[in-house]
Every structure is written in C-alpha cells, then in structure tokens.
C-alpha cells in the first residue's frame, strides 16, 4: 500500500467498523446496494451480480470488506475508474457489499456439463 494513503485508509476502516454492524442489520441494504451497483455502473465491468469479467475482477464470492474496496476505488492507479467520495459515499459502499454478499454462489465448473467436458477432453 502506498504509505501516503495510510491515514485515510485508517479513518475509513474506523468509520466502516463503526457503522458495519448496523448496515448488516438493515434489511434494505441489499436492495439499496443493488440499485447503487447499477446506478454507478459497477455492473458494466464486474457483471450485474459481481461475478467479474476480463474488464473487471470478480467481486463475489470472496467479497472484500468495505474499507478495502474504498481504499482501492478511491485511489485506483490502474484501469479501475477512480470513485471519489463525492461520487460514491462510504455508506453506499457498505450497501454494495451487502448486496454482493447476498448473491448466490455460482456452480463449480465440474458441476456444469459443458465445462466438465472440457476438462475430460484435456485428459
């Protein structure tokens, strides 16, 4: 991590720790998260259910905690567009995480006939 961002990340972590429990308890967080996920365009690269693509990494099933996501998207040096707090608030990120955590798991490749056949073809 770039050391110059560390104080900001620390503050974000404290913020998210404080509000995290209430967000998880909010029955509407998932719905709000989905709406935000679509509104700010996360779905375009990461897929509507966060499963990822070549343009954007998978956000599920191993969803990062809000503070890690915030740290990344606030200061992203790579292809990921920067999302400053004016565009996406910390609270909205917590909602997005709630939504991503609600997404059902994908099947395993070996449970999909076509993909299983690929493995067998290789052997």
């Amino acid at each position: 991590m770039n050391i110059k961002y560390f104080p900001g990340v620390l503050l974000l972590w404290i913020l998210f720790s404080a509000v995290g429990v209430s967000a998880q308890e909010d029955a509407n967080a998932v719905e709000r998260g989905l709406k935000t996920f679509m509104r700010v365009g996360c779905y375009e690269c990461h897929g509507t259910d966060g499963k990822g693509s070549e343009a954007g990494t998978a956000l599920t099933p191993e969803t990062l905690p809000p503070e890690a996501i915030a740290n990344f998207i606030r200061f992203s040096p790579g292809r990921m567009p920067v999302y400053p707090v004016e565009v996406l608030s910390d609270e909205e990120i917590i909602d997005i995480v709630a939504y991503l955590e609600s997404v059902p798991l994908s099947p395993d490749a070996d449970d999909v006939d076509i993909l299983k056949a690929l493995a067998l073809d290789k052997k």
Binding site: K51, G52, P107, V112
Partner: peptide
Amino acid sequence: RQLAARGWNSSPVS
C-alpha cells in the same frame, strides 16, 4: 475453466 462457471446461471447471460 473455473472462472467460466462464475455467473453461469446469471441473467443477463454471462
């Protein structure tokens, strides 16, 4: 192959 399974049942189609 493993990544292809992600979102296999999603709609819109992956």
